[in-house]
Design a binder for these strands. Structure first.
Lengths: 236, 236, 236, 236
DNA sequence: AATGAATGAGGGTTCATTCAT
DNA sequence: CATGAATGAACCCTCATTCAT
């Protein structure tokens, strides 16, 4: 009833081997994602690129969505790690510099430049990736995310000084929101990209990092100001 | 077995009739969009709801994307109109109130609450609607948008006082970005919505309007502050 | 976003044309079914054979199952028509012949020989065709079937004399059951067919029509006998 | 992320252990078959339920079909055993009762009520189970079946008196056919089941056992009658 | 202008079976 | 004997768009 072919691929029996294979898949997915959109990547193409059978992909990921969610998670993990390290460094140095906000913003811009995939994945996170996953996976993801937000948020609080305890996470979520929105606007599809060459609207083009930098900077300043004012009015 | 006579619709010969028919389609599209997502709305369903043939829709719109882009435009038009009116009122009153920012933010929240479709359409504007349109249409749309941004932006400049000439438009674009990001995060799909009932991550839920209000408010304050500082440092 | 090709096929605008096209599809389906099993027929293959696009099939039938159900229905319709005609002829002739049962059985065998597809479709009717259809379609089908059963059943009653009013339909359903079972047993798959060449079990092979003839004949005789006995015991 | 240690099952070295393991698998298959259809039972699910690896199942059965064929065979074995015992009892008693047919039919209904799985497996026997098996297995199965048919058939001949030597087996095959057909018709899928609640076709529902009882009874009576008539006409 | 029949690419997923370990 | 990772064929159906009528 069912045909089968010999299986030319080595079998990953050990957990470590399975982990490696999983990473291999994610790595190939990343490569494809660099060149094309999520929609343009078919599981068939990914399997071919990975040198694996289509079915094998489903041994490691429950669905295409969960696969890319895992890719996002991997990147995010790294990103948080790097940002944490830099924040800790910054905190240690105790920069006499008044303008910590500026430092923080620069830090974020730098780390995002190194992880542009992350921004692109973030764009589809809420509209696609989080749609076709098991609830258990959703909870797992959000739990992990929450932990990161808490940890890095708390570092942010220390570095920036002005936020109250617990507000750091919210600062990250707001950065998130800004990234989603600004990235989309700054990186339109080919049609709009060409349209924006039109002289009268050329002004609507902007560089994502430049714009994010300014906006997030202002946002943090504004929040700090609110805090100061609140304290002052409380003191008086 | 088969439907009765075809009974074709009366032809819209006059421009006014064509205009009306176009509006009818948009109105029905709006109705369907209230109940479901963009993807869930098929052109077939829309044609049936409109009492028109599928092909007829394409007499009025070049593609599904252009149709919803038109819907977006219609809403946006109204939204700008209302916001302009309110801004002008505010400017006229010359509120001695120092906190114009607060007033402006309240205004925006109020107008967005009245146009929630707009936010939902905005979410798909860059990722979907702007993808499959003719370049001429893209230019037309962007030109119109630019005009609105300039006009309303300039009103904003007057109301808020701190922005330099031409910066008002950017304030609107930043609001745009925040809306896109925050809306997606505040309104997840059913799976994540349920996942967020989990006790440990319940804290990640937030109300879009509340959050937008705070964030945009801080953003404006921050921008104002930067301006003041810049001037001060310039003066000194 | 979506490509399209010119549509080389003439359009069936009139109901009559649509009816013809529908029949064309059914006819091609019948051809394919002659050569292979239901499972072996892919909608893609059928569309190619029909010279139509895959999607076009779905304009005429909601699913593969409904398509073959329609094929079954068409055949059944014809079968009932022929059987009715023959029964009426038989009734008219008023065969002095005592053995009406024999005549009826011969009639059924003859009509079934002319509609062997019907038997093969009947095999999959309950296990496949009736599984993936809309309930409304199921009701429609069963209603039509009920009418046929009543009409032909009543002719059977007249011809055979012994059945009470309303029992004729049941005679047909019992024939149905016998056909389903005997056909499967008489026409095994290739493996079993070959196995039955083994000398010790060669005796298990049998001819469907021969066997059906004998069995149904005995069944009718038995029913008649029961009736007679019942009457007799009632009279005495 | 990954499951704990593999902890392979103890090896069944002795034949008795292998036999037990084989039975365990069949037993679990029976459990799953009680709750769902053949198609709905995946080898993966069965292996999990059995606490064995997927590959292990294939150490005991060559294919899914052979596995369920074995399940069928096991049941059939039991069924024949019980029926034989009852038939022998009946023969011993030498029931003065004229209506042995009635007794035999009651016996069969009783035994089938106790083995409803058997009927459900019978439905798929010819269309599925016998399709993907080795020819040697097919021969083995048919040989065993033939023996049973002969033995039980001969008991039937003795009990019923009217069949000639060798005809008993055919009586069983005819019962087989009736069961296949009537069971399918009496136990439709969910859609048709619901459709049959429709008032005008509610009459098409029937109870399998009731109907089988009447039909098989009539069939036997008819066969007996034919015999008597044949003899009589021969004598005269 | 209006119709609606025709198009056909496109793709994720399942699952019985194998065989290296 | 036992394992379970790997295989990969197979398939229905949707739906935006076109264009003959």
């Amino acid at each position: 009833m069912y045909k089968q072919k010999p299986s030319p691929n080595k079998r990953a029996r050990q957990d470590s081997q399975k982990f490696e294979r999983r990473n291999l898949i994610l790595e190939e997915a990343r490569h494809l994602f660099l060149k094309g959109s999520y929609e343009s990547i078919s599981m068939a193409a990914l399997s071919k690129k990975s040198g694996l059978a289509k079915g094998t992909l489903y041994l490691y990921f429950k669905s295409k969505e969960e696969l890319f969610l895992a890719l996002y998670e991997t990147h995010l993990e790294k990103w948080f790690g790097e940002v944490n390290a830099e924040l800790e460094k910054m905190i240690h140095k105790k920069p006499a510099d008044l303008n910590v906000i500026h430092l923080v913003v620069k830090l974020m811009v730098r780390s995002m430049k190194a992880h542009q995939d992350l921004a692109r994945l973030l764009i589809i996170l809420h509209t696609i990736l989080e749609q076709n996953i098991k609830i258990s996976r959703a909870i797992e993801f959000k739990l992990k995310l929450a932990k990161h937000l808490t940890r890095t948020g708390s570092l942010l609080e220390t570095a920036l000084k002005f936020p109250s305890s617990g507000e750091g996470a919210m600062l990250l979520l707001r950065a998130n929101a800004l990234i989603i929105g600004l990235w989309q606007m700054a990186n339109p599809g080919p049609v709009v990209r060409e349209a924006l060459e039109h002289p009268e609207i050329r002004g609507m083009k902007f560089d994502f990092f430049e714009e994010f930098s300014q906006t997030y900077s202002a946002l943090l300043s504004g929040l700090e100001l609110n805090k100061t004012n609140a304290k002052r009015s409380y003191q008086s």
